[in-house]
Design a protein around this nucleic acid. Structure first.
Lengths: 339, 339
DNA sequence: CTGAAAGCGCTTACAG
DNA sequence: CTGAAAGCGCTTACAG
């Protein structure tokens, strides 16, 4: 192994090797390899270079290229938790696809929310001359910007810092809450409960605002007794069951899919069927859960892939960004059988 | 923003700037910055350099360093699916932590299992002079090695290719199956069913072998009618319920946590309680599910973090590896309340 | 103890 | 159309 890429001396083949074989200068090799628009190269020389390239298995050294050109092709992505959820993975995925599209490569660093690791990660990226940094969190929240981030271009992904002047890309919680509620409304429900999280967050306030605005737009009076607090997990949803049953709601919008999963369980204990007795709507579209509940759960998707992709777009200046307020990415509905 | 790192002219501060301010040569700066053991530098010069470094906010250019030193500090990680599951995220996490520990940095590429993307990803990494590549899959399986991988050192993570000569690190499915079964045995069960996946794979054969060996070691005769096939998802577990009930098993080892989740559902439909009527053991330790089922699920963890970490260890030669057979990483038991 | 110089693999004006 | 040369920011023998 480790063959073909290396000359007979064992050293990797360089532009100079190609030049020698093709009988031209390295400048000429550089021109044809990069297909420079300005430079006119004779057909003959061009062909000889191309042949030498394949013959030697030449592969340009991206690092040397960066050094001489002065601008790198790296984009750094620092995340607070890539292991905990599948969510961060999708942010990485979206960021990478978009980065590649523009000839950039992703340098990834996980910090576990640890400040020391964060400082080290950013320093590492700066030393590698990243074009800029995407700073992302696994759940939507406000953050305080690490000092070091001000030393390069950075965009916040799935988080924001008002007044920091840093562009941010976040999910549109309010539109998501509205979409979820509208799905229930469209199915004919009027008495719709909302199991909201007890944790203060953009998700908590945004989804609630969306829930309210959808009801109002439909001419349904908001009954505050229908919004119930619960821990944002299965346990919370399960515990909320009795209140839901008492409320007489015919449909429930759950703060997230995990809560919905707990509610499914509780509803079944009460002998209630989904969606016949009670319709259920989730949020997040966490595949392992939502797609496999019985019945499969209708929900609203958190646009993680898009967040990552949009993040690199604004970083590269391909997408306008208002530094004053976060850019909101839509949370699309995902229809399944729980309604 | 983007301040402090740049000289008055706007250009980033280089070693030369530091040398000028400290009144020494760049060679001297290089020596003190890297704390070279060989070089003896006068206390005075050393101090002046250190002061200039902080004063100017000098940060070494890692790319230039790589170029002149000839060896890079990059490790490439190409994964077939980092978005689909939280699993790949943990592989990345483990690989990154271990890489950092040795002064290396991770270059990540997702290929979606797409061959073209794979070829491109590998080329990209080679052009960036990676020290080596970790090639990983999101579920344990045998692969055919992409041709390009032979151009650098590579280790297979969560997959293997017999006869390829490439070192591989995989989960120990058999030990995992044995551990799961032993957990049930230890709780006093003798009639233990095993819902195995219908998909041929190392997991299918390995976990089954582990199940058998644990029973044999405990002196329990293996009853083939107790091993039931099912799709490796909630739906499969749910569908297997009737057979489980008919079998008279007092405990069930499920191929994975998702199957266990489906079985929970089915068991409840039959009015059976967990663990009082039937004990359930999962596999994977997929947190969103296992930790939040009612009751929480006892399971066996797939060691993704360790796979990633071990992968870089063998890549860096820090850990012995037998090129002929994959290195197996233990799947530890995770005790919860379903037994 | 410290510096001048060559070199890492490329790019880019500038000549011819 | 093509090449010689300087330069990107560092490291590393080699002198002194």
């Amino acid at each position: 192994m480790k063959a073909s890429e290396h000359g007979k001396n064992g050293a990797p083949v360089t532009m100079r090797d190609v030049a020698k074989v093709a009988g031209v200068s390295v400048a000429t090799v550089s021109h044809v390899v990069n297909d420079k628009p300005g430079a006119r190269i004779g057909d003959d020389a061009r062909r000889r270079v191309q042949e030498a390239v394949v013959q030697l298995g030449y592969r340009p050294n991206a690092l040397a290229k960066t050094l001489s050109r002065g601008s790198s092709r790296f984009i750094g992505l620092v995340a607070d938790a890539i292991a905990t959820t599948p969510f961060a993975g999708q942010i990485i995925h979206g960021a990478q696809d978009e980065a590649w599209k523009h000839g950039y490569v992703l340098l990834v660093a996980n910090t576990d929310g640890n400040t020391a690791a964060e400082v080290e990660a950013i320093a590492m990226m700066l030393e590698h001359q990243v074009h800029g940094i995407l700073y992302s969190t696994w759940y939507h929240r406000e953050i305080v910007v690490p000092e070091a981030l001000h030393q390069t271009d950075t965009v916040l992904v799935n988080c924001f810092a008002d007044g920091s002047g840093l562009p941010a890309v976040v999910p549109d919680e309010e539109q998501g809450g509205r979409t979820a509620t509208e799905g229930l409304l469209a199915a004919g429900h009027r008495r719709i409960a909302f199991i909201n999280t007890t944790t203060p967050s953009p998700a908590q306030s945004g989804r609630l605002a969306g829930y309210r605005s959808a009801l109002e737009a439909a001419g349904v009076a908001v009954d505050e007794s229908l919004v119930l607090p619960a821990a944002p997990e299965q346990e919370g949803g399960y515990a909320a069951t009795a209140s839901i049953v008492d409320s007489g709601a015919t449909a429930v919008f759950c703060h997230n899919d995990r809560v919905a999963m707990g509610l499914y369980d509780g509803l079944r204990d009460h002998g209630l069927r989904i969606p016949d007795d009670v319709a259920v709507m989730g949020f997040d579209n966490q595949d392992v859960i939502a797609a496999h509940l019985r019945p499969p759960l209708s929900t609203v998707a958190l646009p993680h892939y898009e967040l990552g992709a949009a993040g690199v777009r604004v970083l590269l200046g391909r997408q306008a960004a208002d530094d004053a307020r976060p850019q909101r990415i839509a949370c699309p509905p995902v229809r399944r059988q729980s309604i």
